[in-house]
């Protein structure tokens, strides 16, 4: 088991009242899983992802990664744990604008330094066909290149879990295919991917699909 959500609930305070977003959601991802969560805007997809990544504590329920209760850890230890075990990919890429591609890919090393990371970064840059762009800043890259760079960054520390929030929302078909292909390879390599998306193209790549609506998750068969 890589990721497990047990009875997770979350609500936000809004205008003096509580607005429930997730209600008693349970989910499990094992090695090799590539799961797409679909849902309308505001259905709580991003909230689910943030809770799964240890960035947003649920009101109720437990989140375990590799058997470790994520919110049992103190914030700093949880951050370190996240660096080691979770990779994030965002729709807006969120590359650091003043760093080069190489430096962006190496950014997680600031949180979790280790040996051989420079070589690992070079491999990822090559794998995502960014070798010629290694010393360029994000503003000098195409949209597809930016997302590939963000993907390389997410994979630097060899996480077991990849959390992706609409990663292909801004990409053309070719670049979206590259991203989905990378997710598949990651899952094939023993990792797990949790993808929240509107993109219908994801359905062709995800091995399982879930729908999030009314705070509940249901499988799409």
């Amino acid at each position: 088991m890589i990721l497990q959500l047990d009875g997770v609930s979350k609500s936000y305070a809004k205008a003096g009242a509580r607005l429930p977003v997730l209600g008693n959601v349970s989910l499990r991802l094992d090695a090799g899983d590539f799961t797409a969560v679909e849902g309308a805007s505001g259905s709580g997809k991003s909230t689910l992802l943030l809770i799964a990544g240890g960035l947003l504590a649920p009101d109720q329920g437990r989140v375990l990664i590799g058997g470790q209760g994520l919110y049992d850890l103190a914030p700093d230890r949880r951050a370190r744990f996240r660096a080691e075990h979770v990779g994030f990919v965002f729709q807006q890429f969120h590359l650091i604008p003043y760093l080069t591609v190489q430096e962006n890919v190496m950014a997680p090393a600031m949180a979790f330094p280790g040996e051989g990371l420079t070589r690992r970064a070079a491999e990822l840059i090559e794998r995502f066909n960014l070798t010629g762009r290694a010393h360029h800043t994000p503003s000098e890259l195409s949209i597809g290149e930016r997302q590939r760079a963000a993907l390389a960054r997410a994979l630097l520390l060899r996480p077991g879990l990849l959390l992706a929030d609409e990663p292909t929302g801004n990409l053309d078909t070719g670049n979206a295919e590259t991203v989905f292909q990378a997710f598949r390879e990651f899952a094939d390599g023993g990792g797990a991917v949790l993808l929240v998306t509107h993109d219908a193209r994801a359905t062709a790549h995800a091995r399982s699909r879930l729908r999030l609506a009314g705070g509940q998750i249901t499988p799409i068969v």
Partner: peptide, 16 residues
């Protein structure tokens, strides 16, 4: 702000 959030997401501690 976004940069801070991303740095936190990739595992940087608040002290960092």
């Amino acid at each position: 702000r976004t940069e801070i959030a991303v740095l936190r997401a990739i595992g940087m501690r608040s002290s960092q």
